[in-house]
Computed example of a mutant assay.
Amino acid sequence: MNRKHNFCAGPSTLPLEVLEEMQSELVDYQGAGLSLIEMSHRALQYDAVHRQAKRLALEVWEVPPEFDVLFIQGGASLQFAMVPLNLLGAGQCAGYVDTGSWAKGAMADARTCGDIYSAWDGSAQGERRVPDDAEIAVRDGTRYLHITSNETIDGIRFPEFPAVGVPLVADMSSELMARRIPWERFDIVYGGVQKNLGPAGMAMVFIRKEVACEPARPLARYLRYDVHSSKESLFNTPPMFAIAMVGKVLRWMRSQGGIEAMERNAQVKADLLYKEIDESEGFYSCPVDARCRSLMNVVFRLPDQALEGRFLAAADERGLLNLKGHRSVGGCRASLYNAMPREGVVELAELMRDFRRDH
């Protein structure tokens, strides 16, 4: 098979050996006579898979014991509502840092669920950077500060996490298990798994155990973190295929050197592309402040749309797929998630160099 390099922002590329392992088990899981995803979620075979995935998630990301990990259907977008519904009690508010497209989405949904405010708005700067701590305005009575650690569409990243005196909640969908974090600053870290860890349809929620308690308001059971925590993410039939794939990817990550290796590889791969951009004498341009450039989603533009179209066509011919930028911003975007091999990024850098020479 001539496997191509998939730079899609999500669903994204997955490790080939993980896909092949799942392929070998799909019809007959460990001699059971049926696939894992046909079994009861109460079956002993699936229970072992489920618990191993939870254990590996905590181990690989070096999560301290005061946190639990939850597998919740609905992706990160459901968490936009679950976070304020569970965390905001009477008289409390939450600050949100508006760094781009996904931060705006989190704020829009949170407004329907609680008292939230903008602690910093990057729109005036054209969403080119994240704020310094001193720029974040935290009000009295703030229960938490929500950040989007990496804006997938806009290619913006927090190089350091804020320390502003209130607990952080972070949407880390496109950086999930791609960098170390200071857990002592956080109450919740969540993200959709379809970028770094598995197929679409599920969020992983890392939650401080003392926070996973009965919410201050009546909520439907599925929306309550304490229900998911007390039931070990088995309150209802879980997304078994997604969880099984995540477990396999986590084992692959551990075999590659764990979170330290993922973080190091992310920097190396991103540097290859930013070098081509910065040394192109303006042929390629990145709109993001250099300090805040994403390591996961490298966004760039060419001199005009016609050249961008030619570049994307040339990339497709080389088997470098899904480099078109999000429809809301245009341009080009290369997503360099954990499973993207360095060889794929080297090929893209070579294409950028060749295309600049020819045009």
Results as ranks from 00 to 15, higher is better:
A242N: 08
S229D: 14
M245Y: 10
R221A: 15
I243N: 03
F241N: 04
R221Y: 05
M245G: 03
I243D: 12
R224Y: 06
S229F: 12
E232K: 12
S230I: 03
R217E: 14
M240D: 03
M245W: 02
K231F: 12
S233A: 05
A242Q: 08
C213L: 15
R208C: 13
R251W: 09
M245S: 03
A212L: 02
L234N: 09
K231T: 12
P238Q: 12
P215S: 11
A216C: 13
F241V: 01
W252P: 02
R224L: 09
P215C: 14
A216T: 11
E214P: 06
R224C: 10
M240T: 07
R221N: 06
R208D: 08
R224E: 07
S229I: 10
L234F: 06
S230K: 15
D226A: 14
V227D: 15
E232C: 11
V249M: 01
N236V: 15
E214W: 09
L223M: 06
N236Y: 07
A242D: 00
A244C: 03
Y222T: 11
M245K: 07
R221H: 10
Y225Q: 10
F235Q: 09
K209M: 07
T237H: 09
V249I: 04
F235V: 04
L250N: 06
M245C: 08
K209L: 06
W252M: 01
R251Y: 04
L250F: 05
K231N: 07
R208A: 02
G247Y: 06
V211T: 12
F235T: 10
P238S: 06
S229Y: 15
E232M: 04
H228Q: 15
L223R: 13
K231A: 11
L223H: 13
V211W: 08
A220L: 12
R224A: 15
P238E: 03
R251C: 00
G247T: 05
A212C: 14
K231Q: 10
A212G: 06
E210W: 01
V227R: 08
L223A: 09
T237Q: 02
V246T: 00
A242E: 00
P215E: 10
V227Q: 11
Y225E: 07
T237Y: 10
V246A: 00
E210F: 07
T237G: 00
E232S: 12
L219T: 01
N236K: 15
P239K: 02
R217A: 13
H228S: 09
E210M: 14
I243S: 04
A212W: 13
K248I: 05
R251V: 00
P239Y: 01
L250M: 01
